[in-house]
Amino acid sequence: MTLLAVERLKLFTTRSPWWSMLAALVVTIGFAALMAGTSDDTAPMDLAATQFGYNFGVVVVMVMAALAVTTEYRFSTIRATFLAVPNRTAALLAKTAVVATLGALIGAVAAFGSWGIATLITPEADLALDSPYAWRAVAGVALVYFFSAVIAVAVGTFIRHSAGAISALLIYSQLVESLVQLIPNVGDDIYKWLPFNVANNFVTGDPDPSARPVEFGPPPSTAELSPWWSLAYFAGFALVLLILSIVSANKRDA
């Protein structure tokens, strides 16, 4: 508990979490408002469309989470931390827990905020949270943000440099995964198992809302796991990265 309190103090005595929160909310809720405002009979508003900006929120949360670690390396406060708490595993787990929880909180506010603003703008649309799918599509965003933040903390711990860690995260999640599909023959099969695509499946899958054109909602996932197994897969990926990064932090000189 002490360590969680320490990491919370550290996180909130800097500005970046506040800016990230603001940016994530503006982007996600802003897109929901845009989608609702421009919806018409040919493209009616639905639940998937309220979460159109969710992927951009993931980006902001990952940047925030990576910075939470890399700025500690940049200003050497990670060394001060390891002097105060020589158990590096405990210190890094506490940091991960605090940062990921903040990520989940941002996700929850962003998702329900998006849903709320869409409900206000287009009251006639069917946006009821009345099915497992509907709840996953909105509340599930928080869980995806949580594990995205874990991944970003792990990558930040491993790479240590802000620019390097953020580039790696963004290039992988935003470019590499989709580009894999271009590999002839096997590309699509590999893509089905790539973590961010699988995470999408948790939020958008079953029933697949892709009856709508992709530009009106988060791109449908091609993963074939069931939604909750998709989340477990994504969580497992995050956990493996976290373990590897903590092992490396224990081995390397601080």
């Binding site: 550290k10 005595t13 500005r15 700025t71 406060t77 060394r79 001060a80």
Partner: peptide, 8 residues
């Protein structure tokens, strides 16, 4: 200099 510059 092992201090975050934006922290008091």
């Amino acid at each position: 200099k092992w201090v975050h510059p934006n922290r008091s």
